[in-house]
């Protein structure tokens, strides 16, 4: 598999007077179609890393190559276009626009890229995505008329509307119960298989991490583990990360 994304010596320093280096020169490559989860303690730098990958934030040092193209020197306008074309975001809080209905929310990235009302084909695609994420009968409702899980699934559909090469999710199931978490995860996995997008998912949930193709663990701004799960079974890989107190293992 080819590399989709390469991070070279990524450093991030916060603050001007009191400088704190949060990321200490990370080197990571992501392959096309890979389903990666990033884990680590709170404050270890996961979100910072994800935001840098998504070009919402700039690294203090180092460079990002996306399909061999350097992103560092793009200006704000170019980055906006880049994000719109190539990156789908799913955040912990759903961040749907409360002013528009479900369908319009899903269409928003397409609306942004075209600048005006999307074509019939795109609307069809949006409806299909809503069907895939299982909220078809709520298509014309406002987001506040949906459950938390449904909202998160709509956010997933929205992240996929422009068929991005890269989907970034920061704790997408952070505020869902374990049932919904499983469903959302299954959904992400299915979509990954169907659309062949690269998924990078930051999570605290070891069950989700264990099901990924690859798990990267970050501690204090360094990659301390980069484990390939392919070929292992779920319980095996789960044990790798949670040697103690494992309810899945006990089953």
């Amino acid at each position: 598999m080819d590399n989709l994304l390469q991070l070279k010596n990524i450093k991030k320093v916060y603050g001007t007077k009191i400088k704190t280096e949060v990321l200490h020169g990370l080197n990571i490559s992501f392959k096309k179609g890979e389903f990666v989860s990033i884990i680590g303690q709170s404050g270890s730098g996961k979100s910072t890393l994800l935001n840098i990958i998504g070009t919402l934030d700039k690294p203090t040092e180092g460079e990002i190559l996306f399909k061999e193209k350097r992103l560092n020197h793009m200006n704000g306008k170019e980055l906006s276009t880049f994000r719109n074309d190539n990156v789908g975001f799913i955040f912990q809080f759903h961040y749907l626009l409360p002013e528009v209905n479900v369908l319009e929310n899903v269409l928003m990235p397409a609306w942004i890229s075209k600048g005006r009302t999307p074509s019939k084909d795109v609307i069809k695609r949006a409806k299909r995505l809503i069907e895939i994420v299982g909220v078809k009968d709520r298509m014309y409702n406002k987001p506040n008329e949906l459950s938390g899980g449904q909202r998160q699934r709509i956010a997933i559909a929205r992240a996929l509307i422009n068929n991005p090469a890269l989907v970034l999710a920061d704790e997408p199931t952070g505020n869902l119960d374990s049932d919904s978490t499983d469903k959302v995860y299954e959904l992400l996995r299915d979509i990954n298989k169907e659309f062949k997008s690269t998924f990078i998912i930051v999570t605290h949930d070891m069950h989700i991490a264990a099901k990924a193709d690859r798990v990267i663990e970050i501690k204090d701004g360094n990659v301390i583990r980069d484990v390939n799960n392919i070929g292992k079974n779920e319980i095996e890989s789960f044990k790798d990360f949670t040697p103690t107190s494992c309810f899945l293992c006990e089953k």
Binding site: S80, R83, L97, M108
Partner: peptide
């Protein structure tokens, strides 16, 4: 909040 999310999705500063 809405503006932030729209910007993350790539809406231009001008828009």
């Amino acid at each position: 909040r809405q503006i932030g999310i729209l910007k993350a999705m790539g809406i231009k500063t001008k828009s």
